[in-house]
Structure formats: C-alpha cells, structure tokens
C-alpha cells in the first residue's frame, strides 16, 4: 500500500491561512491504514486548523469529509457538489489523489495535507516499511525476494558494497543492509550461486527516469469502447 505521514501543522497552516472556506478531504484506503490521511485524521486536522485560526484571530470555515478512494472518479463524484462549495481542498490522500482531484476541481486549488512516502507493508502495528520502489522492472526472482532498488541506499544490482557493517547499512545502523539480507536469504534458499552472475546496467526508462508512466490494458479499453458505442446507439 501507499504509506504517508502527516505534515507538521505549521506547514499546513502556512498553506491554508489565506483561505476562508477549507475542506480537509480524507481518503479511506491506504493512507487511512497508516493513520495519516483517512477521514478520522482529516477530522483531527480540521480541528487543529480551526484551533489555530482561533489563536491567530483568522475567520475561517473548516470542515472535513472522506471517501473511499481519491484515485477513481466514481468515489468522489457523488461529493463533487459539496467539494465545490469550498475555496480550498486540503487533501489528505496520497500524491496520486491530490493530482487526480486537482485536475477535476476547476478553479478550486487542491493542496497536500500529508507527505506521501513510499510503497510499504505493516510488519507490526504502527510500523511501516518500504519494500518496493515501483521501478517498473521487477527483479525479485534474482534477489531472494528482497528488493535492492527499494531497500539498498545505493540501489546496487551487484551488491553488497564495502559499507555493510554487522548487517547494517553505512547510512545508519538502524537500517538493515539489503544485500546482507539478500545473501542470507539466498543461502537459505540454496540459490546463492545465482549471485555470481553480473547483473548488467539497468534500463531505468521503466522507472520514473523515462518520464511519467502510463499502462493501457487493451482488452479492457476495447470492451469499454464497445459498451460506450452501444450506449451511443
């Protein structure tokens, strides 16, 4: 899932302070699970803004709302009329949601209420860890299911580097060395000798380096076009 964390209230206040009607708009999927931007968190942020407005003597109407997904129109279309009553939407969805909604609100700006951090998992309650970088060219079958792109600070394909220290990364002794984990995992799997093969330079064009990515699933597109044509008749 997508993991995010709340922005400091001072930063939020600097974004919203000049607006009169603010809607804090939560997304109840990924960012709700990581306690950053669900409807509950949107409600908390709305009250923090109201308190701040009161302290600063600023007159401002602040409300909150939440829907299931900000990344598919059918989830927020039913509340679009409501959204358009405000002069700022502070979205607590991930960056995808902010972009997507912003394209559809006309002259109303949509600002980010959280920092979108990574694709991660929940090893224990309240802890979120990054496990995938969405690089567009998965090589987990070569590395014992442990991603060196997301989990090695140097994105090394032929690790480890010389910086591994007692199983930890040279960046911090709080961070596991991904290559240490890969080696230990591949030993267990009995596939360590696979690491002797040199992985060639990557084609980063599948990653963000190739520009914004778009995937079109042809059979779905064809089906939709047919349905649209039928409805047109």
């Amino acid at each position: 899932m997508i993991v995010g964390s709340q922005k400091p209230i001072d930063e939020i206040w600097s974004m919203v302070k000049d607006f009169k009607k603010v809607l804090v708009f939560g997304c109840n999927t990924c960012v709700a699970i990581c306690h950053a931007g669900g409807e509950k968190e949107a409600e908390t942020i709305a009250s923090l803004i109201r308190m701040r407005a009161q302290q600063e003597g600023t007159k401002m109407e602040v409300n909150h709302l939440g829907v299931m997904r900000h990344c598919e129109p059918e989830y927020f279309e039913p509340v679009m009329d409501e959204i358009k009553k405000y002069d700022l939407v502070l979205s607590t969805a991930c960056g995808v949601g902010v972009n997507f909604l912003s394209d559809r609100t006309g002259t109303i700006p949509v600002y980010p209420g959280i920092n979108t951090s990574f694709y991660g998992a929940v090893p224990e309650p309240g802890v979120f860890v990054e496990l995938c970088a969405g690089c567009g060219n998965c090589i987990l079958h070569l590395t014992g299911g442990i991603c060196p792109i997301a989990r090695c600070a140097k994105t090394l394909m032929n690790g480890p580097c010389g910086g591994t220290n007692k199983g930890k990364c040279e960046v911090s002794n709080e961070i596991d060395c991904a290559w240490y984990l890969i080696v230990e995992r591949m030993k267990k799997l009995g596939t360590l000798e696979k690491l002797a093969e040199i992985q060639p330079p990557r084609n980063w064009a599948t990653s963000r380096d190739g520009g914004p990515r778009r995937i079109s699933v042809e059979h779905i597109r064809e089906y939709e076009e047919k349905e649209e044509a039928k409805a047109g008749k």
Partner: peptide
C-alpha cells in the same frame, strides 16, 4: 545520489 551503475557494471 545517482547510482545509475554499480561498481561491477
């Protein structure tokens, strides 16, 4: 950081 390549590459 860049790390377009690693040492072996």
């Amino acid at each position: 950081n860049v790390y377009d390549l690693d040492t072996s590459q």
